[in-house]
Computed example of a mutant assay.
Amino acid sequence: MAAVLWSVLYAAVEVTWASAGITVPWKEHAAYAPAVQLLLAALAILAGGACLASTRALARPGRAAVATALIVALPVFVVGTNGLPIYFVTLATLSGIESATGLAQVLLNTAGTVLLLLVALSYRRRLRGDCPRCGRPHAGPSDGPLLHPAVSPASKRTRRVVYLLLCGLLPWAGVKTIWTLGGDAIGVSADDWQRTTSVGASGLSKAAASVGIDVTVLAAMVGGFLLLGLLHAWGQEFPRWTLVLSGRRVPRLLPLTPAWLTGIPLTMYGAVLIVMAPLMAVGVLPEAKPSAPFTTSSGITWMVEFGGLAFAGLGIGLVVAAHSYAARTHPVCASATATNRPAAQAQG
């Protein structure tokens, strides 16, 4: 029902913006065309209808129609979440919002992505004859108590993969740190960098810079902290330093929601930058024109590549760690274990 309500709200907002001629940016210096907004509204209604039909017994054509609608709609709204990390950084650093409608659009796309994913997962389980809630086959009710697995860290292989991905942050964070500490790198002087970034900077940004930390590097450190929680046992059970929460189970969605919502957009954004930089370097794409604080095109190209490695590395790392965390913390209905217990005893 939540997905259906979202679809109606999304369609109403898009139609209102399109009919009123309100500008809704989707990237820098580009906005959604009214025709695209109306198309998105229609797609949201289609997805909402599929969500409503997914809870009913359908013949094969109906099941195929529901699956097709969800498969078509989901990637569109996933792409629409691409600006979420950027808005998060600007909000966290009190740098101000460039576009309220742009932020609203990203949040609407994000809400739709989450709800449609949950519906698609539940629908897939239902088609397989599994419990739509826990994903296990059992004859008991699907609204009873849940049993949670014991606390466990990610496997060594998963941790090695994630730590390797985090190494993608090093060139980007290193250059930013050099500039913040007063050094020069890739043709940009510390004075030019600080002069450019100080314009409109928030108090938090200036405070972080005063101790040699770029605020975007600080945001990446927050992402790294989230990654550690996803990989280690203290991300499933609050550690002693959390005081009153110590020893309590961490709600699964508390780390998973920000991990998925930032990991997927960061991965997409970083992948685009990684591809763009070498294409710019060899002339397939137009060479970037120098703009302050950069004095050469090559400096911008290197920074684009460093940014791609950082964003994609952190994004993929979050996705991998979140997948491991979701698997290790996946609860099951108590009735599922009760159903399987007699079978196990019979085999014994």
Rank of each mutant, 00 (worst) to 15 (best):
V4F: 11
V8I: 14
A11G: 05
A12F: 11
V13I: 15
V15G: 02
E28C: 00
E28T: 10
L38F: 10
I45C: 09
A47Q: 02
C51A: 14
L52R: 12
L52H: 10
A53I: 04
S54D: 03
S54F: 06
S54V: 05
T55C: 04
A57K: 13
L58M: 11
G62P: 05
G62Y: 01
R63C: 06
T68E: 04
T68D: 05
I71C: 07
G83T: 09
P85G: 10
P85T: 05
V89L: 12
A92S: 14
A92Q: 13
A92K: 06
L94R: 13
S99I: 11
Q105L: 08
Q105D: 13
V106P: 02
L107A: 15
T110F: 10
L116P: 07
L116I: 09
V119P: 06
S122L: 08
R126L: 12
D130L: 08
D130T: 08
C134E: 07
G135I: 05
A139F: 06
L146Y: 03
H148C: 00
V151A: 12
S152E: 14
K156Y: 01
R160K: 08
Y163E: 09
L166R: 10
P171K: 02
W172L: 08
G174T: 09
I186Q: 04
I186V: 15
V188Y: 00
D191H: 11
W193K: 01
T196C: 03
T197K: 11
G200C: 12
A201M: 09
S202E: 09
L204F: 13
K206D: 09
K206W: 07
S210Q: 07
G212L: 05
I213V: 15
V215D: 13
A219T: 06
V222D: 02
G223M: 06
G224M: 11
G229V: 05
W234T: 02
T242L: 11
L243M: 13
L245A: 12
S246R: 12
R248M: 12
L253P: 02
P255A: 05
T257L: 15
T257A: 15
W260K: 00
L261M: 13
P265V: 02
L266E: 01
G270R: 01
G270C: 01
M276P: 01
A277K: 08
A277W: 04
V284P: 08
V284W: 13
V284D: 03
L285F: 12
P286F: 07
P293R: 02
F294Y: 13
F294P: 00
F294M: 05
T296P: 07
M303P: 02
F306G: 00
A310R: 04
F311R: 00
A312H: 01
G313H: 01
G315T: 00
V320R: 00
A321W: 07
A322N: 04
T329I: 11
T329L: 11
P331W: 11
S335T: 15
A338W: 08
T339H: 15
T339E: 15
R341C: 05
A343L: 15
A344M: 14
A346P: 10
